[in-house]
């Protein structure tokens, strides 16, 4: 997978991720509202990530970064379609566990892909550029979403984010860029 393809696809992934992240709390608030439930929701997320990292690391070497990142994007696109339908806390917990596992896939593979697509000499500046573009995308989407929420519902945000994940998947799918 080429460096530009990686930057572009992951920028879109970050856009979608930061779009839902701040507003995801509102969903939790609607479903359950004690601090212990917040704790559990995020704790399960982190725990699911933690236990899946070693396995994902091995998969990245076996199947290749591209396949895993593609899997991540498409799975997230599908998963987000369930968010607007959540009505109970246990459903939030299930989604959090799946998000945790997928999050680990993305984090681990993104780093592996970066390491593989840059040469050691320019690794620092390549990483810098990668983080620059993905962070710019994230910041822009947080700000824009703040305005969007005024006009749309929280559910619409999840649908838009799902489409963005699907778009990032399609970019990874294409052989060359």
């Amino acid at each position: 997978m080429g460096y530009r393809q990686l930057v572009l696809s992951q920028s879109i992934v970050f856009m979608a991720g930061s779009m839902i992240f701040p507003f995801y709390v509102l969903l939790l608030r609607n479903v359950g509202d004690s601090y212990s439930q917040f704790g559990w929701a995020y704790g399960l997320f982190a725990l699911a990530s933690a236990v899946s990292y070693p396995l994902i690391g091995k998969w990245a070497d076996r199947f290749g970064d591209k396949k895993l990142l593609l899997f991540y994007s498409l799975a997230m696109a599908a998963l987000l379609l369930f968010f607007p339908l959540v009505t109970a806390v246990w459903q939030v917990y299930v989604l959090q566990i799946m998000m945790g596992i997928l999050g680990a896939v993305q984090k681990n593979t993104e780093k592996a892909a970066l390491a593989r697509s840059t040469d050691k000499k320019h690794a620092g500046s390549d990483m810098g550029r990668y983080h620059f573009w993905t962070s710019v995308a994230a910041a822009a989407s947080i700000i824009i979403t703040g305005y969007l929420v005024d006009f749309l519902t929280i559910a619409a945000i999840f649908y838009i984010a799902s489409l963005l994940y699907a778009a990032s998947g399609i970019i990874i799918w294409r052989k060359h860029l």
Partner: peptide
Amino acid sequence: CYSTLFAASLYVYTQFYS
């Protein structure tokens, strides 16, 4: 598959959850 899932989710949401 994705389009089908998307449409189904949207349908269920607008019918029952919105």
